[in-house]
Every structure is written in structure tokens, then in C-alpha cells.
């Protein structure tokens, strides 16, 4: 009874949120899961249970392996996006960390794309990534031509094999500044004494970064990867805006939308759940790890 009086008011204040999240996050996920094992393939009701057939069909029986293809696209996109954004973010942070005049100005510009929606930036990136090569080239290809770098011209997202790598460019543009800000905060969270101690030991700048500073940044890098990774797996707006829904650039999130268009709820639900599992595989261990690290501190 005393325990209740102690925690009661707090729980009371918390409970509306908990109830809402229980319903709208976990309840709806359960509902989607139930839908994904039914045979509701049209707008008409039908709720037969078909077990894991919808999942099996996605991986083994989808026309032209459309789902596997969308996963492959997602993989290429994610890898290029993560590597690109981490790399640019780190380089920018390093430049600023070394000290430049008007640092605030550079920081503001590097970060501003983050304020823009994918739908808006997609409008211009669709134009920049114009696939015409040679005569009549536009966008970045035209820029290459005027810089006499014609060999760099390419078909961007319409390239059948590596198109998704090009699709990651706008995402890198948008989020490198974010990674930069994270790293910058990380750099500046390192105690000055550590640097000074290293300097006293006569460590070169390279050694200072390699042995003292970078190891301190591991947690920052990890959280940056997690944030970018989960954004990448949900990627929808950008692709809808740059290429529209089509085979070449289809990822699972877009596939869900296309499937819903023909009211195939069961299949759409199955794809969504696969997507959720992909995210969970990465996020859940991370959350548990964070939780534990916090307790130990």
C-alpha cells in the first residue's frame, strides 16, 4: 500500500501515454501480424488463416523475385548511405575540429539540408541526377562536362545494377551534417587533459587521433549508425519523390504502398512485418546495450 502511494501518482501521469502506445504501437503491430497470416488479398473481407504462406511466397514465389530485389536495393542503398554519410560527417567534423574561422557559418551551411523534407529535396535531386550522358546532358552530368570530367558522367539511379547507390546521394547530402554535429559534440566532449597528456608524451597529431581521440568516439559513431540505419530501412519519401514507384528503385517500404494500391492487405502486412523485424534485429540489442551501459555508470 505504501509502495502504491509512492509510485501511484507517477504511474497515473504516465498511464495515458502507456495505454496509447500499447494500443497504437504494440496493438497495431499485432493486428498487422494477424493480417499477414490471413488471406485477405482483396478489398473484400476474408479472414482465412494461411500460416506463414504469405511470407514464404514473398521469398520464394514472388513474380521475378520482386521482394528479394527490393531487399537487395535496400541493402545497396543502406550501405552506400551509411558509409557516405559517416565519411562526410567525419571529414567535416575533423575540418571544423581543427579550427577554422567562421566555424559557425560552415556548421550552419553543412547542417541546413537536415531541415528540408525529402519530398522537397527530391524535386531538385530528380533534376540533378538527370540520366542523359554526352550531348544533352543535364544536371550533375552537365557539370562534369563543363569541368572536362566527362568520364564521371553516369546514368545515376537508372543504372540497373548500381542505381540505388546514386539514390543514396540525396540522403547523404541531407544527413552528413547531422553526423558531423554528432561527431563534433563527441570531439568536444573529450577532456582537454587527455589531449595535453598525449602532447606531453610527444605523440604526433596522427597518433593523437588514432590512439586517443577516435576510441573515445566509438559510442557516438555507434549511435549515428543506428539512427541512420533505421532511417534507411524506412526510406520511402525520397524514392517516391525522385523516381516514383517503379521496379528499378523499389524498396520494401515502396512495395508496401504499391501492394496496398491493389488492396492486397495480407501481402502488404507481411512485407511490413519483415521490415519491422529487420529494424528490430538492429534496434533491440542496441536498446538493451544502452540500458545496461547506463545502469553500470
Amino acid at each position: 500500500m505504501r509502495r502504491l502511494r509512492h509510485w501511484g501518482p507517477g504511474l497515473l501521469l504516465l498511464s495515458p501515454s502507456l495505454i496509447l502506445l500499447a494500443i497504437f504501437v504494440y496493438g497495431l503491430i499485432a493486428w498487422t501480424t494477424k493480417m499477414s497470416v490471413s488471406d485477405q488479398h482483396t478489398a473484400l473481407k476474408s479472414n482465412g488463416f494461411v500460416g506463414l504462406d504469405n511470407y514464404k511466397n514473398l521469398f520464394t514465389n514472388d513474380i521475378q523475385d520482386r521482394f528479394v530485389h527490393s531487399l537487395r536495393n535496400l541493402l545497396i542503398f543502406t550501405v552506400v548511405f551509411l558509409v557516405g554519410a559517416m565519411l562526410f560527417g567525419l571529414i567535416w567534423a575533423l575540418i571544423l575540429e581543427r579550427g577554422v574561422r567562421a566555424e559557425g557559418f560552415f556548421r550552419t551551411i553543412y547542417l541546413f539540408p537536415m531541415a528540408v523534407s525529402f519530398v522537397a529535396s527530391g524535386v531538385v535531386w530528380r533534376w540533378l541526377m538527370n540520366p542523359v550522358v554526352g550531348d544533352g546532358a543535364g544536371g550533375i552530368n552537365a557539370l562534369f562536362a563543363s569541368l572536362h570530367l566527362d568520364f564521371l558522367q553516369n546514368k545515376w539511379w537508372t543504372n540497373p545494377t548500381w542505381g540505388m547507390a546514386a539514390m543514396a546521394m540525396p540522403a547523404i547530402w541531407q544527413l552528413s551534417g547531422y553526423v558531423m554535429a554528432l561527431f563534433l559534440a563527441g570531439f568536444r566532449g573529450i577532456p582537454q587533459e587527455l589531449r595535453e597528456a598525449a602532447a606531453m608524451d610527444g605523440a604526433s597529431t596522427y597518433r593523437l587521433y588514432r590512439n586517443v581521440i577516435f576510441p573515445q568516439l566509438t559510442p557516438v559513431a555507434l549511435s549515428a549508425l543506428i539512427i541512420l540505419g533505421h532511417m534507411s530501412m524506412k526510406m520511402f519519401d525520397l524514392i517516391m519523390s525522385v523516381s516514383g514507384p517503379q521496379w528499378l528503385t523499389e524498396v520494401p517500404a515502396v512495395y508496401v504502398w504499391q501492394t496496398l494500391l491493389t488492396s492486397d492487405y495480407a501481402k502488404a502486412a507481411a512485407i511490413s512485418i519483415v521490415l519491422l523485424l529487420l529494424v528490430a534485429v538492429v534496434i533491440v540489442p542496441y536498446l538493451i546495450y544502452t540500458n545496461r551501459a547506463e545502469k553500470n555508470s
Binding site: I63, Q64, R66, H69, P160, Q246, W247, L248, E250, Q258, L261, T262, D264
Partner: peptide, 24 residues
Amino acid sequence: CSQGFQGAANSALGAFSTNQDVAG
């Protein structure tokens, strides 16, 4: 074609545009 058929056909043609796989 129904919309489902159209969607599948469009997707198949999109794939063919890149892979040129007649049998596929």
C-alpha cells in the same frame, strides 16, 4: 487487366528494361 494485373505487368516490364531477360 485489373489493377493488380497492371501493377504486376508494369513491374515486370520495368525489370525487363534493365535485365533484358526474355524468359524471365
